[in-house]
Simulated scan of single mutants.
Amino acid sequence: MYQAISTQLENNILIITINRPDKMNALNQTVMAELALAVDEIYSNHDIKGAVITGAGEKAFVAGADIAEFLSLSPKQGEELAKKGHVIFQRIENSPKPIVAAVNGFALGGGCELAMACHFRIASENARFGQPEVNLGLIPGYGGTQRLTQLVGKGKALELMMTGDMLTAPEALSWGLVNHVVKLEELLPKTIAILRKIQTKAPLAIARVVKCANAALDKDQDGYDTEIQEFAACFATKDLQEGAAAFTEKRQPNFTGA
């Protein structure tokens, strides 16, 4: 089905692998189109409870975009390219099901932007992060200027984007860009373990947590009002009744997403 990515569904977790190891898993139009289809499947397939995005091999998560595709673009085509990237990455960011980046090497340019669009990031010890677009006379175009600033703060984000420097995995951890740093062989097991823990929680509540957290960073929304409305909506769910009953009965809840 796919040429530039691969997918594997195990125990309700979809593993999406950017599969161009000979090109350091660089993003091109094919990767982006196929990634969009895989994200659509996350939304539509009820068997999928969460997802991992990672890269093939041991060197790169996604080491940027396929620069050769940029050389002939007009400003209008550049705008269209950025808009397409924004749509796909916003779909990842707004997914009601958790999507976690397992960063297994270089996450540069569009790769760093892809990782930041995920709900959170787990990195291997050899991971490297950066937005080096200024080296090409460019700026991040898939939301990187916004998400990096939100995640690490304006000063650090500007330094990283203006110097084009790379962060090591420990530096990314200290900056708050990633949640955990583990050995490469532990990367997928750690990521899947977190997703399996999330699977034991109420899925409608998880989706509402995502919505509220994103509202906190959206200038067009009142995040506090969003929280009030989503909190209230929980009271119409069977999952709240089940969770409360399980708590009082001292047993594990059986959430159904209803």
Rank of each mutant, 00 (worst) to 15 (best):
M1V: 08
M1Q: 05
S6F: 04
L14M: 09
L14S: 06
I15M: 14
I18R: 01
M24I: 02
M24N: 13
N28G: 11
T30Q: 15
V39Y: 13
I42R: 02
S44I: 09
G55M: 06
E58C: 00
E58L: 06
E58Y: 11
K59G: 12
K59F: 13
A60P: 01
A63N: 14
G64W: 03
D66T: 09
L71C: 01
L71S: 02
S72Q: 07
L73R: 12
Q77L: 10
G78S: 08
E79G: 07
A82I: 07
Q90E: 14
I92F: 04
E93F: 03
P96Q: 04
P96Y: 15
K97Y: 10
P98L: 08
V100G: 03
L108R: 05
C112W: 05
M116E: 09
A117K: 01
C118W: 10
C118Y: 08
F120C: 09
R121N: 08
R121V: 15
I122F: 12
S124P: 00
A127V: 05
A127I: 09
R128P: 01
F129K: 03
G130S: 07
Q131E: 01
E133C: 03
I139Q: 11
P140L: 08
G141T: 06
G144T: 04
T145G: 00
R147F: 10
M161L: 11
M166V: 13
P170L: 12
G176T: 12
V181Y: 11
K183M: 11
K183P: 00
R196W: 05
I198D: 04
I198G: 00
K201V: 01
P203Y: 03
L204V: 12
A207G: 05
V209S: 02
K211C: 04
C212W: 15
N214Y: 14
D218N: 15
D220K: 14
D222R: 06
D222H: 08
D222P: 02
G223S: 14
G223H: 13
C234S: 13
C234M: 15
T237P: 02
D239Y: 12
G243T: 12
G243A: 07
T248D: 01
E249D: 12
Q252V: 11
N254S: 03
N254R: 01
F255M: 05
G257A: 06
